[in-house]
Amino acid sequence: MKLPSLKLVFSFLFLCFYTFVSAQYSIPDKPAVLYPVFDEANLLSEQEKNDLNKKLIAFSDSTSTEIEVIIIKSTNGEDVNFLATMFGEKWGIGQKDVDNGVVFLIATEDHTMSIQQGRAVEQYLTASVAGQILDYIVTPHFKQGEW
């Protein structure tokens, strides 16, 4: 039995590594001006974005809790919960010393979403409550095309 050449083995390993690395979602740099709604997938109309931005800015002003709604097309195979957390960390959602940010990530083509919250928000928005919001409020509206 003839063993494969070393060159062939390395080529195969490189191809596997390249496929794995290139398939991951790359979080973009934080925009110079970050509004509460970041719609990379262009799911919302300008009016819907403006209305939601106004509501989330007012909420932040009255509570100091920052909510960032991030809409992307696909996670490219990345875990949606991990991506939401990474967006929050890379973009600095919430006050740094307070950790009071919330990231609501929607991946339209994957039909998946996540709500991740900072430690200061967990007492009000637990993982269980976030799951219930997604399951019983958000998902039924999304299924009806109400974004």
Rank of each mutant, 00 (worst) to 15 (best):
S45L: 04
N42R: 14
D39C: 08
V33Y: 04
E46I: 04
A23N: 14
N50I: 00
A41V: 02
D51W: 06
V21R: 11
V21D: 10
E46G: 03
V37F: 01
S45W: 02
S45K: 06
Y35A: 06
Y35C: 01
S26E: 15
E40N: 11
F38A: 09
D29M: 12
D39E: 10
Y25I: 09
D39I: 05
E46M: 04
S45T: 15
D51M: 09
L44C: 05
F38Y: 11
E48G: 02
D51V: 08
Q24D: 13
S26V: 15
D29W: 08
P36I: 02
D29S: 14
D29F: 10
L34Y: 01
Q24C: 12
S22G: 10
A41M: 03
V21Y: 13
D51R: 10
Y35Q: 08
S26M: 14
F38Q: 09
L43D: 01
I27E: 03
Y35V: 02
S26D: 15
K30P: 04
L34R: 04
N42G: 14
L34V: 05
V37W: 00
L43C: 03
S45P: 04
L43Y: 07
A23V: 08
Q24A: 12
L34T: 07
K49Y: 01
Y25L: 10
Y25P: 11
S45M: 05
Q47R: 05
I27Q: 03
L43A: 07
I27P: 01
Q24G: 13
Y25D: 07
S26C: 14
E46L: 04
L34H: 01
E40I: 05
N50K: 03
S45Q: 06
E46T: 08
D29V: 11
A23E: 13
V33Q: 08
D39H: 05
S22T: 13
E48S: 08
L43Q: 07
D51N: 11
V37H: 00
I27T: 06
S26G: 15
S22Y: 12
Q24T: 14
K49R: 09
N50D: 03
Q47C: 00
V33C: 01
Y25V: 09
V37E: 00
F38D: 00
D39Y: 03
E48D: 08
Y25K: 08
E40F: 10
D39N: 09
P28N: 12
P36R: 02
V21E: 11
S22H: 12
K30M: 14
Q24R: 15
A41Y: 03
N50C: 00
V37N: 00
P36L: 05
D51S: 11
Q47F: 02
K30Q: 15
E40S: 13
A32H: 11
V21W: 13
I27M: 09
N42Q: 15
P31T: 07
P36D: 04
A23L: 12
D39W: 01
Y25S: 06
P36E: 03
K49M: 06
A32Y: 10
N50S: 06
Q24I: 10
K49S: 05
V21K: 12
L44D: 02
Y35S: 07
F38T: 02
D29Y: 10
E48P: 00
V21P: 09
A32F: 10
D39Q: 08
I27C: 07
P31E: 09
V21I: 12
L43S: 07
V21G: 07
N42K: 15
P28L: 13
A41W: 01
Q47Y: 03
Y35R: 06
S22P: 11
Y25N: 06
D29L: 14
F38E: 04
